[in-house]
Design a protein around this nucleic acid. Sequence first.
RNA 1: GCCGAUGUAGCUCAGCGGUAGAGCACUUCCUUGGUAAGGAAGAGGUCAUGGGUUCAAGUCCCAUCAUUGGCUCCA
Length: 641
Amino acid sequence: MIKITLPDGSIREYERGITSLQIAQSISEGLARNVLAAEVDGQVWDATRPIEKDASVRLLTWNDKDGKSTFWHSSAHLMAEALEALYPGTKFGIGPAIETGFYYDVDFGDRPFSSDDFKKIEDKMLELARTKSDYVRQQVSKSDALAYFTEKGDEYKLDLIKDLADGSITFYTQGNFTDLCRGPHIPNTGFIKAIKLTNVAGAYWRGDESRKQLTRIYGVTFPKASELADYLHMIEEAKKRDHRKLGKELELFAFSERVGMGLPLWLPKGAALRQKLVDFLQRAQMKAGYEPVVTPHIGHKNLYVTSGHYEKYGADSFQPIRTPQEGEEFLLKPMNCPHHCEIYKTKPRSYKDLPVRFAEFGTVYRYEQSGELHGLTRVRGFTQDDAHLFCRPDQVKDEFKKVIDLVLYVFKALGFDDYTAQISLRDPENKGKYIGSEENWLLAEAAIVEAAEEKGLKTVTELGEAAFYGPKLDFMVKDALGRKWQLGTIQVDYNLPERFELEYTGSDNQKHRPVMIHRAPFGSLERFVAVLIEHCAGEFPLWLTPEQFIILPVSEKYEEYAKKLLESLNNTDIRGLIDLRDEKVGRKIRDAEVKKIPYMLIVGEKEVENGTISVRKHGEGDLGSMTIEAFSKQLIEEITV
RNA sequence: GCCGAUGUAGCUCAGCGGUAGAGCACUUCCUUGGUAAGGAAGAGGUCAUGGGUUCAAGUCCCAUCAUUGGCUCCA
């Protein structure tokens, strides 16, 4: 007998060789029907794999992340089986589960493939799923594994096996399909009830451009048809919220081929929104002791040679601009920090002066590969809400904590309630790719970890995700549809102060090196606005809305009253407009609703007589009539953040 | 940058070898209307660009550009 510890702490005794599935059955039939896999001593296993010794077991269902990914990984195998049945001779690369769904990289040889083939594959998959074939795990020797795939003629699998240690190789078979696979898998294909192939794309074998390009087929599957329907609905909703679509419809920004790809044009309404964000953060930063600075859009090449950016990114950047007479080389500013370092150096600094905090909404230009541009989230010219804090080593942690406070304040004001922080540290395996001394890195990493801990942030730590000059703390927010976005970032930098030979005079009258912290709560205004649009589906918080109200006269007879009304309501914080078109009020309301204008003020005979307005709120409907003063007061209260 | 898809009116799209279409938006006129589309008329396109095939090319082929889904990259 062996002892199995369950997540609730209870310990049950079973015969040696019991499977997780049988454990589930001993608890309840319902549970057993839903078990996809199990976590055995921290490792995800097949639910059907025998357990040979005492272990702690957590049964995984569709509600667990690992349960889902097991399900999707098994779905990838099911798709491969369908592909092999439909297109004999297809070779297979890798087929993992991804955040939502799975993909399989396959080589169809010369056969053309397009999304038109999806239906056929989906049908075949469903047919195979209904056979409820078990996923059977089998340990094989390296030579047998090689022999199998040599026989099958699948060079990709052979390439994979080459790198595997003999003794740790497993095959999984379901139906007529056998694949090299570490597992785990769901018990049988019958769990897969709803299937949707989503898209097809090219992907290089092992992500290497010099190797053959395979066809990557993406799909997603569900244990219930209704879940697929929900998923498709979510996709529809995401499409409706796409910031590129809403940005066009709400006249926030545009792109022009003539201006150049990846270079956004902010239209009046978008610029108004953007300006409000800038004002908002500017005010918060002034309170927090930041000093605004302004630097030019280009900088001498030597500046970036000094900073190290030229060496690292020069070849992949926009190429230098040369002055016609002197032949001096200037770069479009890809970063604000080198400029800010020079500002720091304009005068001797005392330890008493630190920290100094230079803030700039600095527009930077970076070459992004053409295929990578995407709406406002990936552009070639963008404005960072950048600031650099220069402080003493003993101030780092404190400053870091203050920045965390600022970032959280910004998120709260903008309705991002669900966020996590990612601590990005060095890749311990590959320390050579980072600039800076071991000692400095250890200091910086400790400061971040401690600050995040003391602020009680929900964090995940990623090794190898640090910037080349220092570790960082990135904030990821979840939007209204549950999608994750990376926004704010805080980065410790012991490196630039070194390169720019920044100094301050300590209380010991000796020169010391300050520490630099880069930080941007929004990240970039472009990206932030994109995320904000999708988060709130274009219905911005009132204080950010470019046009907060629209006056709708019932007929042209009330035009005068409407104009006076506009004059009395408009001020620096509240902006509105009048719809003077020769249309019925129903039409004007519809158009205002479509434009997502928060308040509609309807004025007609009644209102003129009583000196009131009839207020309608976007998405809610008629609020009844009120006095102008009452409305104005309500609006001001609502926009105060 | 690489692979695939797409590019027709301001917007959303139909047409896929034989005289450029629809809805919305726009302009003008009628209508003076009370909480999500009043009526009529009009204007608007070298069918992304450049080549080619054809008696004839938005329509078929090639190239370029842009957009887009991925890959790769991201200070």
